[in-house]
Design a protein around this nucleic acid. Structure first.
Lengths: 142, 142
DNA sequence: TCAACAGTTTAGAATTGTTTTAATGTGAAC
DNA sequence: GTTCACATTAAAACAATTCTAAACTGTTGA
């Protein structure tokens, strides 16, 4: 399985040594066909359950942060008690279902490009994120 | 000063009794001409310093939450260790300066309206928030 | 007038997500 | 093989938020 060498490369690119623990993290993050959203908690649960591997939280955090810094993961700007990450690093946006706390991708084709007429002197735009909050029709606003 | 009666009304509308502590919170939030962004920590500091009043955190939290629920405050969707609130409850968007961690309003006139072509079955759009992250030109991406 | 009560305030404790620490482990290069 | 920089780990520290339990307050209605 040459995936392993891809993972090792990703780790080295992120300034991390390819250790057993980190390769497991890569396996969970980068093997699936479909991209997905996760929290650190989700990720450690998957590793523990599916791979019956126990990886210390500190290792998970430092690996995820390195991947984010390198651009192999994106952090989604949603105000929540926890941080959400996305293995889809292409430019796209999100629906957030307030009933289920679920994130749903909104591809660039599904939204007209955002045209910003203002700019902040001396500052460069790093990212533009659109978050569309949705909820059941027949539901009280919370 | 008839502001007081406005504040009392706002509190009652939010299902809260107008107590001394809560009126102080209203004073800080709703007296200024200009709307502003704040964290719970900011708010308690302002109350302590400017009004030399000490209000328990629990009271601040419950009042802010009630105002948010009622729509007198907006919570800004930014992924951060703390929650940011906005006294500007009209529809508008934000720049986030990554260098200074500062939020800057982006009015609806300064951005073309976002046109969403996708919809989630059975769900209604509650809000659309655009967050534009900016940073110094000559700065490393973090 | 005052007893009762529903809602409030408060300090501190509890909880939760995240980061730090300090000790121990590991693997590639000499 | 030794060494050394980097890793892993469990546990402690930390920070934001929520919860708790006890004391307080203001209205209501005997």
């Amino acid at each position: 399985m040459s995936n392993i060498s891809i993972y090792k490369e990703k780790l080295r690119e992120s300034g991390l040594r390819p250790t057993r623990q980190r390769l497991k993290i890569c396996e969970v993050l980068f093997t699936p066909e479909k991209t997905f959203h996760f929290t650190i908690n989700d990720l450690t649960k998957i590793i523990e359950n599916k791979l019956s591997e126990k990886i210390s939280l500190a290792t998970v955090y430092n690996t995820i942060h390195a991947f984010k810094k390198k651009g192999y993961l994106k952090e989604i700007s949603i105000n929540s008690d926890k941080s959400y990450f996305d293995t889809n690093v292409t430019e796209h946006h999100h629906f957030f279902d307030e009933d289920t706390n679920e994130l749903i991708d909104c591809s660039n084709e599904e939204i007209d490009s955002v045209n910003i007429k203002k700019n902040i002197t001396g500052k460069k735009i790093k990212s533009v994120e659109v978050l569309i909050k949705v909820a059941s029709d027949n539901q009280n606003q919370n």
